[in-house]
Design a protein around this nucleic acid. Structure first.
Length: 233
DNA sequence: AAATTGCTCAACCGCGATGGC
DNA sequence: GGCCATCGCGGTTGAGCAATT
């Protein structure tokens, strides 16, 4: 038995949204709010759509102050920096770029920035995974480390010095091997040789020495992050 | 001009987290 | 503490468009 579907697939419309549907949803939410229940929303609005679909449409397209189109150099740099620090946590990255959605950033990274990185990494004088992210950042962040806060008000600093925040929450739980890989690959390419993270929520320090470290604990179920980082109380 | 290939991005899917009962 | 409904996230897909052959 699989997971129960979130809605009645047979009676739900899929695919691109029409302008009429957009208008209905936008008008309703602007007047009544979401009511804290996306699943019930389509019925109230009179749409044959899945609640999840409505939520996505609102968050990624209809919400006020959404920015579409070209990413600026500054945004590029922020995305690269955060990706190097926290990996593919698009929602956290998006929270640092007003008007941008996690979906937007994810798409932008996958289609453009990632290629840019790879192109730079393949240049002959550079070893793979080395420096490319840093080079992108250098122009704007050399004078002061980049820092930001996530939605829980945890602070993060670009690792010219330290990184603080809820690192345990980033590393624990269901890190897929892909995201963990990218996280550590990025760390490897980006870190100063002896870099230290501090997790503000657990007050743990995480040391990464020379781009490689050893792990003594990891809650990831697939053990993909074993032997990569050590937690020092 | 037609066919093919590549790219972009909106939307979908499935899963873990969370909160209420 | 267990169950269930819902939310939110990250990965993936595929339609539509643009560029190339």
């Amino acid at each position: 038995m699989g997971r129960a579907p979130c809605c009645d697939k047979a009676n739900v419309k899929k695919g691109p949204w029409s302008p009429e549907e957009d208008t209905k949803l936008k008008d309703y939410i602007e007047q009544h709010g979401t009511g804290g229940n996306w699943i019930a929303l389509p019925q109230k609005v009179g749409l044959r759509r899945c609640g999840k679909s409505c939520r996505l449409r609102w968050l990624n397209y209809l919400r006020p102050n959404i920015k579409h189109g070209q990413f600026s150099d500054a945004e590029d740099k922020i995305i690269c920096s955060l990706f190097a620090g926290i990996g593919s946590r698009w929602s956290i990255i998006a929270s640092q770029l007003p008007g941008r959605t996690d979906n937007d950033i994810k798409n932008y990274w996958n289609t453009k920035l990632k290629k840019k990185m790879m192109a730079m990494n393949s240049s002959p004088e550079r070893k793979p995974h080395q420096v490319s992210l840093l080079s992108i950042l250098q122009s704007s962040t050399s004078s002061s480390p980049l820092s930001f806060r996530d939605s829980n008000n945890n602070s993060y600093c670009h690792p010219h010095g330290s990184f603080s925040g809820s690192l345990s929450s980033l590393l624990s739980g269901n890190n897929s091997s892909a995201s963990a890989d990218s996280f550590f690959q990025a760390q490897e390419s980006f870190m100063d040789p002896n870099c230290q993270f501090k997790d503000s929520s657990s007050n743990m320090h995480v040391c990464v020495v020379g781009g490689e470290a050893t792990a003594t604990s990891c809650s990831s179920s697939d053990a993909s992050c074993n032997n990569q980082i050590s937690h020092v109380m």
